[in-house]
Design a protein around this nucleic acid. Structure first.
Length: 194
DNA sequence: TTATGGATCTTCT
DNA sequence: GAAGATCCATAAA
C-alpha cells in the first residue's frame, strides 16, 4: 500500500473548510518501521475568534503556541492528567485556530495499535481523541511538527468518496457549545458519538 | 444499559 | 487551587 500525501495547499482555507475536507482522508503514522493508518471520520473546528471553547481564546500561551503557527502544523496537547489530543493547525500565522481529529477508522497496523493501546477491542481502538493518540503513539514530541513535510506523521489522500457529512455540536466542552463545529461521516461505525 | 467517580498533571488564575 | 476539547472500571438498575 502506498500513500500520497496531500498537497500543501490542502491546509489553506477556513478552519471549517479544512475540518470537513479532512473527513475521508487518511491519517498516517510512521513508527518503528511500520505504518499505522486510518481514515479520518470525525473532526471538530476550533476557531481563532468568537469561540470560547478554543484553547486560543485566552491568547497565545506556552501550551497553545503551535495553534498560532502556520497551517499544516500539528498541535498536540495534554489534558485530564493522562490524555493527549491531536489537532491540525489552520489559518494564518498569528491566529490560533485548529481542527481536532476526534476519531479514525483503523486501516493498517492494527496489531501495533492494539499493542500501544494495551487493548484488543477493535471497536474502541481509535474511537475518541485520546484513544486515537494512544493507538498511534502521538504525544507532545509531535507538537509543532509540520504535517506537510514530516515523515513521522502526515495526511494522505484516499479514494473514499460519496459519503455524507453531518454537522453537529462539539463534544466535551462547556463554552460555545451551541456552535455547529463538529463534522463526521454519516453512518460510520467509528464516529465517537451520534 | 446508564451512572458515577477515579486517574493524574499541566496550565492558568 | 481549580478545571480540563477524556477514558475506564465498577456499580446500580
Amino acid at each position: 500500500m502506498t500513500y500520497r500525501r496531500v498537497s500543501p495547499d490542502f491546509f489553506n482555507g477556513t478552519t471549517e473548510e479544512v475540518a470537513s475536507k479532512l473527513l475521508g482522508k487518511i491519517l498516517l503514522r510512521n513508527i518503528e518501521n511500520q505504518i499505522l493508518a486510518g481514515i479520518i471520520v470525525e473532526t471538530e473546528a476550533y476557531l481563532d475568534s468568537d469561540d470560547l471553547a478554543s484553547h486560543s481564546a485566552v491568547g497565545m500561551t506556552e501550551r497553545n503556541r503551535a495553534m498560532f503557527g502556520e497551517a499544516g502544523l500539528a498541535y498536540v496537547y495534554f489534558t485530564y492528567g493522562m490524555h493527549y489530543c491531536f489537532n491540525v493547525v489552520t489559518g494564518e500565522v498569528g491566529k490560533g485556530s485548529a481542527v481536532l481529529i476526534r476519531s479514525i477508522e483503523p486501516k493498517e497496523g492494527i496489531e501495533l495499535m492494539k499493542k500501544f493501546r494495551g487493548k484488543n477491542d477493535i471497536n474502541t481502538l481509535t474511537k475518541g481523541p485520546a484513544r486515537l493518540c494512544q493507538a498511534l503513539k502521538i504525544d507532545k514530541r509531535l507538537n509543532g511538527v509540520d504535517l506537510k513535510t514530516s515523515s513521522e506523521i502526515y495526511i494522505a489522500e484516499s479514494d473514499l468518496k460519496n459519503f455524507e457529512i453531518v454537522r453537529s455540536r462539539r463534544i466535551g466542552i462547556q463554552k460555545s457549545k451551541e456552535k455547529l463545529l463538529r463534522f463526521y461521516i454519516k453512518n460510520n461505525h467509528f464516529v465517537s458519538k451520534k
